[in-house]
Design a protein around this nucleic acid. Sequence first.
DNA 1: TACATTGTAATAGTAATATAGTACAATATT
DNA 2: AATATTGTACTATATTACTATTACAATGTA
Lengths: 123, 123
Amino acid sequence: MINFILDPRTGTPFYRQIIDQIKFGIASGKLKVGEQLPTVRALAVDLKVNLNTVSKAYKELEIQSILETQLGTGTFISKSDFSLSDKERKNKLDQIAMEFLSIAYSYGFTKQDIINKLNNQKS
Amino acid sequence: MINFILDPRTGTPFYRQIIDQIKFGIASGKLKVGEQLPTVRALAVDLKVNLNTVSKAYKELEIQSILETQLGTGTFISKSDFSLSDKERKNKLDQIAMEFLSIAYSYGFTKQDIINKLNNQKS
DNA sequence: TACATTGTAATAGTAATATAGTACAATATT
DNA sequence: AATATTGTACTATATTACTATTACAATGTA
């Protein structure tokens, strides 16, 4: 199960952030084949977005055969083998790191400040 | 000087891609304090986007005190702002690191993934 | 059989994104 | 002083993203 998070600062549409997090969740092994995803309503409430936004994300992933939906039952990770390339994973990590590094810089922190903070943090 | 590139496939708005690349340029040391950026018209022609799109990116970065603009002269990298108290800075760093981690987790990355990424990055 | 839960669909309205075009104001250059 | 270059501002238009609301259809459950 993923703890979904939307970041409005990135400008990336919400439905696409949901898509990405599901894709990366599968690729990283966090989401297993056959596992049920949150219902469109539950995730919409959780993320404080409209039901249609979640539905749009799920729908696109179903077209790509990454998800399977059953009306009245729910949405599940499809059995089709799916993985992201190393390059795609690297690019996403780059993007995330860049965004936060730039924020840290704008407050006068150094890269080492961030690394030290992460090393001292639990989890 | 950055070699700007826009990727329409990502779904990320053009003006935000420009913002990101400038921020990344600063964070990576490619862009130095005081350096002049391309003029809004030159970059618009280069990227084949409208003048207003570049202007919007520069404007937002100026609001964040990352850029400084002078009418008739151009747009430049400004110094970062260190106006927070020590306590505020510590809290801010906590907040940045926490958000950083949460978003990375939601994409299936581990804390170590991030630390490695930061360690392998220049600047 | 009822009822709740699930995904789906459709309409409407608002905001964000991007374009095109034009014009203006401040500065630099000649 | 005249001209070019710079960022800025404005209107208009089109498309996409998102929300709000309502309703419907398929499935699971009491």
